[in-house]
Simulated assay, not measured.
Amino acid sequence: MAELVSLRVRQEAAVAEVTLLGPGKGNLLGPDFWTELPQVFTELDRDESVRAVVLTGSGEHFSYGLDLEAFARRWQDMFSGQPGLAGPRTELHREIRAMQDAVSTVAECRKPVVAAVSGWCIGGGVDLIAACDVRYASAQARFSVREVRMAIVADLGSLHRLPAIIGEGHLRELALSGKDVDAAEAARIGLVNQVLPGPQESLRAAHEFARQVAANPPLTVQGVKQVLDAERASRVQIGLKHVAAWNAAFMSSEDLIEAVTAFAQRRDPEFTGR
């Protein structure tokens, strides 16, 4: 692997471990992450010595999600003085599609990917684990499809991959409210496969599953994953294209500015629908 900033990759036998490194204690998904994630998973997909992948976070949390401050600055520059023009909206659409493609490299990796989640898993973090094949969590884990509270339609895959994992009713409850759920609730609705007492136990469980997968015939394992993904993949891609177009058209709003401002000021936002 080339030198990485946002991710660390280690390999033991046939299992690779990919760890989110930040920035910040919540492993925010910043600009470096969106460049490095597809590089890492494309290389893992090609590396025949790798038969399974464990995805986890460093420190106490899996991920707080998108680095809002970094992207708010980017969006402000993009739309400054010309919010209604097609040029900046086309650029936003291109960026959304690139970020979607980055997450899709996790889902499309031929090697099964298992997530080990502790602490908070918010927004883009949920998009990431939705792209994984199996998910383990510590009892301290918390989950939130929080984009609606930030005046954003979740556009990186959770709305499209989670129906097959937790069902549409549970997804609508999470995505329309933006509420937080604990590990026990996540297990009840099927968002995680198993809850373990602590972070080390959940990581060990993920590695044990990965080793079991790696011991099986690799081409057969890849075939099982491909067959399971075949029907869902086309629906996911159609949905991703739709939400990218929607957000390129409508995400630039006064409510988004209010959400980011309120977040920075640590107060409740006041939305106006403008």
Rank of each mutant, 00 (worst) to 15 (best):
S118L: 09
N27I: 08
E201F: 01
S202Y: 02
F250I: 04
A249F: 07
V15L: 14
F71M: 00
D32M: 04
R172M: 01
R10F: 03
V9E: 12
G24T: 14
V227T: 13
P269C: 05
S177H: 04
T56V: 10
A13G: 12
E231S: 10
Q140T: 13
L156N: 07
D127G: 04
G273Q: 03
N247L: 04
N216D: 15
A186R: 00
A131E: 10
A248W: 05
G178M: 06
R74P: 00
L128Y: 07
G119W: 12
P88V: 09
S80M: 10
V15W: 09
G124E: 14
R274G: 09
G124M: 10
V126W: 01
G239M: 02
E173Q: 02
H242G: 03
V53M: 11
S6A: 15
L92C: 05
G22I: 05
A70I: 00
E258M: 15
G125E: 11
L240A: 01
T220M: 13
D133L: 06
A116E: 06
N247G: 07
S144R: 06
A107V: 04
Q226S: 06
L219Y: 08
G81V: 09
L7R: 06
L85R: 13
N247V: 03
W34R: 02
L55T: 12
V227F: 08
V5P: 06
N216F: 13
E168G: 02
R146D: 12
E108S: 06
R135P: 05
A139M: 05
A16D: 06
V148E: 11
A186Q: 03
F79H: 11
A249Q: 15
S144V: 02
C121E: 05
D77S: 06
N27R: 09
T261F: 12
E147K: 02
C132T: 15
A86F: 00
R110S: 07
A214H: 03
V260C: 05
L171N: 01
F33E: 04
L162I: 00
Q140R: 14
T90N: 09
F71T: 05
L203W: 07
G57V: 11
V181T: 05
H170A: 13
A233Q: 14
K179H: 10
G22L: 06
Q265N: 15
A13N: 15
Y64D: 14
H242R: 14
L21I: 01
